[in-house]
Amino acid sequence: MQKILVARPIFPDVIERLKQHFDVDWNQGEVLSATELAQRLADKDGALTAGDPVGAAAIAAAPRLRVVSNMAVGFNNFDMAAFNAANVLGTNTPEVLNESTADFGWALMMAAARRVTESEHWLRAGKWQKWAYDGFLGSDIHGSTLGIIGMGRIGQALARRARGFNMRVIYHNRSRVAPQIEAELDAEYVSKEQLLKRADHVVLVLPYTAENHHTIGAAELALMKPAATLTNIARGGIVDDAALAEALRAKRIGAAGLDVYEGEPRVNPALLSVPNVVLTPHIASATEATRRAMANLAADNLIAALGEGPRAGNPPNPINPEVIGRARA
């Protein structure tokens, strides 16, 4: 049987599915270091990862490796130049998490705007003694302007939610979406600068690339309204976390909601010391139904890419389909 590595703990029933096709090496412990991952990949034909970095060194050390299936939409953990050079296929799990992630982004935005975390900590500390007219005044969501940076599937799901709150929707994207989608969402395309100046609530839903590194930094935060909120459910590194912490501390913006961070799982200590930020540990897709769908889609990709199952040779979600059918370099 072909050999695969499952680099993270996942649902046992998905492992049982994979065992019907492969000899499975399943890491049920801590996250593998780069060295440990390379060692475990050395004799493998395929792998299922969940954000684990797979680069040129790991690929070079694994001469049999033909596919790495990522249990995530983003794949900035893959060195795609190395994948392509070696004719190794990468796959991901889009679509199945759109709605759950949009739900969570909405919850994070509302929690930041209405100071939910800040007020809960205050209550738990025993400080609530009386009602006050100016206690934890936040920002309205209804009737405000939502700015979406990254109008892909999840961005469009957020824009649909905005209609129920009677919000104006403006967006910025690498390229404009189709006119019929703009009309359906009642969304206006604007420059990034215009969006930051006009939006009451900014949500980031763009992929991480070298070009998108620190899309939001000190200069961009300075353009935002003093009461505006910033929500990041995209990827760490899109926001300059140090600059954001300083802007929050100085109250140059109202609040922020973050599910992703630079260098996660480490979090910039400055963010931990400011009260007007809601922090969650990369859980935007964390419902049981969605995480199961992601795990099973990652398994589907791996099974098909290694020539097994009803879709043999035709994985549902190839990132670099041009390498399918090519011999390993």
Rank of each mutant, 00 (worst) to 15 (best):
V202R: 12
N296Q: 15
G325L: 09
L297C: 00
A243C: 07
G309Q: 11
A305T: 04
E322P: 02
T209M: 00
I324Y: 09
P281Q: 00
N276P: 06
G237V: 04
N320C: 05
A295Q: 13
N317Y: 08
H201K: 11
N212A: 15
A245P: 00
T231V: 09
P281D: 06
K197H: 13
A305Q: 09
P318I: 12
H282G: 06
T290Q: 02
A289Y: 00
N301S: 13
A199V: 00
T231H: 02
E308P: 08
P315M: 01
G325E: 12
L271D: 04
V274F: 11
K197V: 11
T209V: 02
G309L: 05
A255Q: 00
A255N: 10
P316K: 07
V202F: 03
A234W: 00
L223R: 14
L230G: 06
A228S: 15
D240E: 09
V277W: 02
L258P: 05
V277Y: 04
T215L: 12
L297G: 08
E211M: 07
N268G: 09
N276M: 08
L204D: 03
N320A: 06
A247I: 05
R292T: 14
N301K: 14
V260N: 05
E308I: 03
A234N: 11
G254E: 14
S273D: 15
T229R: 06
A250S: 13
R235W: 03
D200M: 09
I238N: 00
R326G: 07
I283V: 15
A289P: 12
L204W: 04
A222V: 10
I253K: 02
L223P: 13
V205S: 15
N301I: 04
E308A: 15
L306D: 03
A329Y: 00
I319E: 11
A210C: 00
A199D: 02
A199M: 10
N232C: 10
D241S: 07
L204N: 05
V260I: 03
I216R: 07
A199S: 09
L248D: 01
L248C: 03
I303S: 14
A327I: 12
A243L: 08
L302Y: 10
A256P: 13
L221C: 07
L244A: 08
N268C: 06
K197S: 13
K225S: 02
L196E: 11
I303C: 13
A228K: 13
I303K: 14
V267F: 01
E262P: 01
V239E: 14
T290N: 07
L258K: 07
R292I: 00
T209E: 01
E262R: 10
N317A: 14
L272G: 11
V203D: 12
P207R: 02
P207W: 08
L204T: 01
N320E: 01
A270P: 14
R235Y: 05
R235P: 04
L196F: 09
I319C: 05
G237L: 02
R266N: 15
A298E: 06
G313I: 03
P316S: 11
A327N: 13
L221Y: 12
L223M: 14
I283F: 13
R249V: 05
I319H: 05
A270W: 11
L271S: 06
A199K: 06
R291L: 15
